[in-house]
Design a binder for these strands. Sequence first.
DNA 1: TCAATATATCAACATATCTTGATATATTAT
DNA 2: ATAATATATCAAGATATGTTGATATATTGA
Lengths: 107, 107
Amino acid sequence: MEVFLKSVSALNDETRVLILRFLDEYGECCVCDLQSSLEMIQSRLSRHLKILKEAGFIRVERKGTWAYYSIRSPLDRFRLEALEEIRHLSLELPPLRKSSDKGECSL
Amino acid sequence: MEVFLKSVSALNDETRVLILRFLDEYGECCVCDLQSSLEMIQSRLSRHLKILKEAGFIRVERKGTWAYYSIRSPLDRFRLEALEEIRHLSLELPPLRKSSDKGECSL
DNA sequence: TCAATATATCAACATATCTTGATATATTAT
DNA sequence: ATAATATATCAAGATATGTTGATATATTGA
């Protein structure tokens, strides 16, 4: 029950659904990429990424000070179906701003 | 997004997960059956049943003063997968107490 | 070591959700 | 019409969750 509710409550937020959809669309991103792309302040993103990670939806790979987040793979049936559902939502997905590549990550 | 979040937030509660599992296991029940079986006060049940209904998981059929709730059918893929997930949770399912049949519904 | 940068966590406040007991509504039987 | 019963809704309080700005931690480079 705990694990199920953790998954479900992770999905129960518009911000986190957007983050999932964004990572699903564009692949691995570091926090500052997400900041510039989604126009969210860092503490807010960090919080939601942690929740999504602990719910088993995403993984993080650290490279130096950067933290690269991506959809975890493989996903179990339920999480996969949730992701599929999210994929078909008509939400406005902002374009990817890869500030990490260009060393212009100064947010 | 709204519809998705409505489904998800309906799932995001231990009480409602139990109600879903219960209806899935035992089929159609009226509110007083649920009261006596799940040992919950009536206003609490009524609230959660409403949320589950509005989220598309259950339906209600009125017969006189009784309201019979059951899992809605057909369910879409996501809701069905959620139900399947719930089916495999190891939760303590109390036995069915069909007080409605015997006219002993006096809670 | 020190400064700069990326990320994580904390504290305070605002908002949402759950629980309970009280009340309202609706149907049935007398 | 009145009483009894089943269900729904409301109000108030308690708990959980989200947002923000400030601070902490950790890594890199000078």
